[in-house]
Write a protein that binds this DNA or RNA. Structure first.
Length: 240
DNA sequence: GCGACAG
DNA sequence: ATCTTGTCGC
């Protein structure tokens, strides 16, 4: 496959310009299935330390469909953008892109911690990471940013469309009985129904996908790589 | 003006 | 997200 990533844009921008950049890049999101056969799935997440002054980007690659860990990479960068609802990608994507570049085994698909199309300008974190990296992505959020939905059925796999007006922007997906649904949306190069299938396949036991769990674990791990910023680790132990 | 508001 | 103890439930 030949990804065609867009040239990077500035990150140190005002909220108003950030929104403008999102609206422009939103045109580049591909909402159809254009992904290679999936052999490796990655989870990407961010954690903080030093009272939030330091951002920790974690990416964990798992084989698919086995879901065993292949590679873990963690790096630290100074936090440069505040959390503003709707502008999360400007806070997290820069470090995540660097982490992706450092991977020894690039993934065929990335499950992101946050929304994709289910965003005011249809350009959530998953879309941003997907468009700039060229890698297919899915937005998997634990809570809702925008949109309305009815309660999905009670069984694992049941889901209800997430609407913004009459437009379907994502799905409220039950990955486990008796637990709150996740919010799944297109990130890049994948359709919503295909995305739902991968999220279910990656979450065989718990509410959150194994990819997300592994990335979150690494991002918030206590003793995270000694030798200063840029520290990376690979070939971890795979315990469940 | 009053809420809502991914992580 | 992060600060933090116990607690209810499988």
């Amino acid at each position: 496959m030949t990804p065609t990533p867009s040239p990077v844009h500035p990150w140190a921008v005002s909220p108003a310009l950030a929104r403008q950049i999102q609206s422009e890049l939103a045109h580049e999101v591909i909402r159809e299935d254009r992904l290679d056969p999936v052999r490796r799935v990655a989870g990407a997440d961010i954690g903080f330390e030093a009272g939030g002054r330091v951002t920790r980007a974690a990416v964990v690659v798992l084989d698919y469909p086995g879901l065993d860990v292949c590679e873990r990479l963690l790096l630290r960068r100074p936090t440069r953008f505040p959390y503003i609802p709707g502008l999360l990608s400007f806070r997290e994507v820069p470090a995540l892109l660097e982490a992706l570049d450092g991977l020894h085994t690039p993934p065929d698909l990335i499950l992101c911690d946050g929304q994709g199309l289910a965003h005011p300008r249809r350009f959530g974190l998953a879309c941003h990471l997907g468009v700039l990296s060229g890698i297919p992505t899915i937005g998997v959020a634990k809570s809702r940013l925008i949109g309305r939905h009815i309660e999905p059925g009670p069984a694992r796999g049941d889901w209800a469309p997430l609407y913004d007006g009459d437009e379907i922007i994502g799905a409220a997906l039950r990955t486990r009985a008796r637990t709150r649904p996740l919010f799944v949306s297109i990130g890049h190069r994948i359709s919503l129904t295909t995305a739902i299938g991968y999220v279910l396949a990656c979450a065989p036991r718990y509410r959150l996908p194994e990819t997300t769990r592994a990335a979150h674990r690494l991002a918030s791990e206590e003793k995270a790589g000694e030798g200063g910023m840029g520290g990376a680790q690979r070939n971890p132990s795979r315990r469940g």
